[in-house]
Every structure is written in C-alpha cells, then in structure tokens.
Design a protein around this nucleic acid. Structure first.
Lengths: 123, 123
DNA sequence: TCCATTATTTTATAAATATAAAAATAATGC
DNA sequence: GCATTATTTTTATATTTATAAAATAATGGA
C-alpha cells in the first residue's frame, strides 16, 4: 500500500461519524445496508451521511451498488486489511512485529444475504 | 480503547507529514530523536514540525523529554498497539479476525541508546 | 403511461478545524 | 552575559464539516 493511500484511508476513518458508519458496515457484512437505513440507525441527516459515504468510498473503504430504489453500501474488507498491513509494517517497529498479517474476513457474519429495505416507523 | 481516542489517533496519522514523522520515530526506536533532527531528516520547517509533533503527542502517539537543549521525541508503541487492536476488533468483522493481537515492540531496534544531538552540517 | 411517493445525491452557505511559516520565545554552552 | 541554536506561539490562509433546500432517480399503482 502506498503511503498516500494510507493517509486517505486514515483520514476517512478519522472522523467520528465516518468511523461509526464503517463499523456498522463491517458488522453488517457483505449484505450491506441502504444509505437511508444507515442514516436512520446512526441518526445522521441523509445529506450529511451522503457526504461521509462519498469520503469513505473515495478512500476505497466502502463500495455501493444500486438495488431497486436503494443504494446499498458495504465495507471493503480488503481495503481495511491493506491499511492494517501498512500500519503494522511501517509504524510498528519495522521488522519488529511483521508476523501479524491481520487478515480481515467477513465470514460467518453474513446473517443477511440480501439487501434490506429501510424500516421506517413514521413517527 | 475508546472510540474518541481512536479517532484522535487516526486523525493524528491522517496527514502525510505526521505519518512520516511517526514512521521515522518508530524506526528510530526508544532512543528517540530531537525535534530539529526530525525536521532536518524530513525537510520540514521547524515551526511546522512542532505543530505536527504536538498533534501526535496530544493523540498519545509520541512522547517527549528534554535532554540538554534538545527535546527528544519517541514513539509510544503501546498507543499504536491500542489503535491496531481497536481497528482489528471493531472494524474487522467483529469476531472475524480477533486472533491477531498485533503487539508492537521496538525490541532489537534500539541501535541508539541515548539521545543524539542533531548533526548540523552548516551548509 | 403518468403521477404520487420514497430514496439518495448535489448544491449552497456558514461554521469549525487544520495547516504552514513568520515572528517571538526559551534554553544552552562558551 | 551573549551569541547560537532549538522550539513554540501567533497569525493568516485553506480545508473540512454540517445541514437545509433543491434536484435527481426509481418504484408501484391509478
């Protein structure tokens, strides 16, 4: 991983809303979540969320696909792996602790196999 | 590690100069480096470097001590360990890859045992 | 098909925060 | 003490963030 890409990924995660969004998407697994569902779950205004999702996508940490009228976002685990590998190799004593390749996989987490529509209790 | 602290650490590393500084200090090991030495090595103006060092220190990623007229900075490996642990646990599939504790230690890297004065070839 | 409904993104604007480097301050050794 | 070197503070500029409002996109039913 290039240093510039690492900075981009770090910057994307260095914001509380974005870190929350990414955590949620990691928990969600490959099924992903609709933008509105994320906004509802984390209580973030849709426009604000869209802004942050764009930053995460630009950093390669999430990807999106359109399903019906929803846009489903999901975490890109490989990007997180690459970031952890970079930090481990470059900021962790060099030859000091290179044994931890820290591979992240969503296996066993996909309790939702397909995109879910946002549940909107119109309160 | 608290989420807010993680954001602080991520933000501290999410800037190219600061990431370079931290990398350099990790490579340097517990011996540390004087601020002026870092500035010279990375070609960063002293004032700018001081600003960035403060950010790193505030995030707990580096610590400083005064030795003679120099202020020596060194990486705090435990902080980096905590950050990697946080990312691995929270942003890596939850139970997906908790096996990698990713412990960073500077052992074998301390080729400098005491603070070094910045070598200034007055060019 | 066309329209009402719902979802998401873009745009515009204001506020907050980050950055860089000149100027000022502090500390040391001779 | 004072010249020298190191570091920090200040100040101006640039970037990022947040949100509402408007625009865009997609669906399903009349």
């Amino acid at each position: 991983m290039d240093s510039n890409i690492a900075v981009l990924a770090l910057a994307a995660l260095a914001q509380s809303s974005r870190l929350e969004v990414f955590r949620l998407l990691v928990q969600t697994g490959p099924a992903g979540r609709a933008a509105g569902d994320i906004a509802h779950a984390l209580d973030i205004p849709p426009a604000t969320l869209s802004f942050h999702l764009k930053a995460l996508a630009h950093a390669g940490l999430v990807e999106s696909r359109q399903v019906g009228r929803y846009v489903i976002y999901q975490a890109r685990f490989q990007a997180m792996n690459a970031l952890l590998a970079y930090l481990t190799e470059n900021c962790c004593g060099g030859t000091g602790c290179e044994a931890s390749a820290t591979s992240c996989q969503p296996e066993g987490n996909a309790h939702e196999t397909t995109a879910r529509a946002p549940r909107r209790s119109r309160s």
